[in-house]
């Protein structure tokens, strides 16, 4: 890739926080770095990956509203976690976390346990208790 071929296709995936150095050839065929804000094919693929994540969040939300899954399941998806990551953050066993993902077990949880989840998810305890899905 030559210096003037480094793509600058901005899809705001970097939110203006940085530009990425790309290695490219200068006029003399020597390598240098050029800062790039993005590249179309890459943007398409990253956006597609996020679409899949968001679909899963939406699906989980519906399941919570139907009373099958618990708000913990929703926030877990929203924080891009899986059961083992959430277990590591809360200190609960994986099988315990798995139970808490179901609404019927969630209803029996005490404040102390809920507070642990709320803390990991960066939300207030009442929000979680009231099954608000932010």
């Amino acid at each position: 890739m030559k210096k003037d071929e480094v793509p600058q296709d901005d899809a705001n995936l970097l939110e203006g926080k940085l530009r990425e150095p790309c290695y490219a050839l200068d006029e003399n065929g020597k390598y240098t770095t050029v800062k790039s804000v993005g590249w179309d094919p890459k943007n398409v693929i990253i956006q597609d990956a996020w679409k899949a994540v968001n679909e899963k969040i939406e699906y989980t939300k519906e399941q919570v509203e139907e009373g099958v899954l618990s708000p913990i399941a929703y926030y877990m998806e929203k924080q891009l976690m899986d059961v083992s990551i959430l277990a590591a953050y809360t200190g609960f066993f994986r099988w315990t976390v798995k139970r808490h993902l179901k609404m019927k077990h969630f209803m029996k949880l005490n404040d102390q346990k809920l507070a642990k989840y709320a803390d990991v998810f960066d939300i207030d305890l009442p929000t979680l208790k009231n099954k608000e899905l932010l």
Binding site: M1, P21, C22, Y23, P41, K42, I45, I46
Partner: peptide
């Protein structure tokens, strides 16, 4: 492709 073009690979 994400692994290939991820931030940090330099392309």
């Amino acid at each position: 492709v994400r692994a290939q073009e991820e931030i940090g690979t330099g392309g």
